[in-house]
Amino acid sequence: MHGSVPRFAELMEEFERQVKTGKMTNPTLSPKNITPEPIIRIIEMHKWFGEFHVLNDINLSVNRGERIVICGPSGSGKSTLIRCINRLEEHQRGKIIVDNIELTNDIKNIERIRAEVGMVFQHFNLFPHLTILENLTLGPIRVRKLPRSEAEDLAVYFLEKVHIAEQASKYPGQLSGGQQQRVAIARSLCMKPKVMLFDEPTSALDPEMVKEVLEVIMQLAEEGMTMLVVSHEMGFAKSVAHRVLFMDYGQILEENTPVEFFSNPRHDRSKLFLSQILH
């Protein structure tokens, strides 16, 4: 958070200017880039951890090409929500439909959905016993059944995209945090997913590395990737998100465009939250 303060200052100025003139300077935020078909639909979803009601009546529809940032205090259920989408957590009531496949206990459906939904974790979760290249080619070879040479070409392409191609034969333990996270992003991209989920991708990084990872995510955004990002990086939310969701106590309290959300928060809780981070 501390390292994002300089960005805040610049972005706050830009933001004020946009609000004043009513103009959006980021072309990818235009609604023309969003196709009207929803790729994720969550209908009246509830989840309990034992007795604790962690997700309460979640209703959400995400269209292809849309970018959503989910923010809120800790314990609000943000990570649990996106983990339900690829079945890392199981929901008890309601429906989740991803790419027209309903998420049930059927393992075949779950695996098909997981191949289309990429996930980037807070603590990277690279496989330490494989080289970077092997980390990336594992999914395409084993799940997409690509031949090895094709998978390696794909891996090298995405490694170059995240500007880390020279590290291909190293092991994750030899890379810095920012480099590992970029490799993790490339690993998910190699599966050519339709949706990318980001679970606090920069929370475990120091400020300098936060910048390099956010730049990669923004590049993905410009290319039209559908993404759900749980993040505390408010500057990132402002410049990249089509919608901002604010969650607390397992409920989506407010859902709005970034411009509206940051200038006119409606819910009291969101006002409190924003006042504390935007001092």
Binding site: R114, F121, N125, G139
Partner: peptide, 30 residues
């Protein structure tokens, strides 16, 4: 083995057998 390894393997779409053979067991047995 940290839970994150299991989760990363699952989120790639690997099935149980692949997950154990390629990711978890090589690390655990070592």
């Amino acid at each position: 083995i940290p839970r994150g390894q299991y989760e990363a393997a699952e989120s790639l779409g690997l099935n149980y057998y692949q997950k154990m053979r390629l990711i978890i067991l090589p690390q655990a047995l070592r």
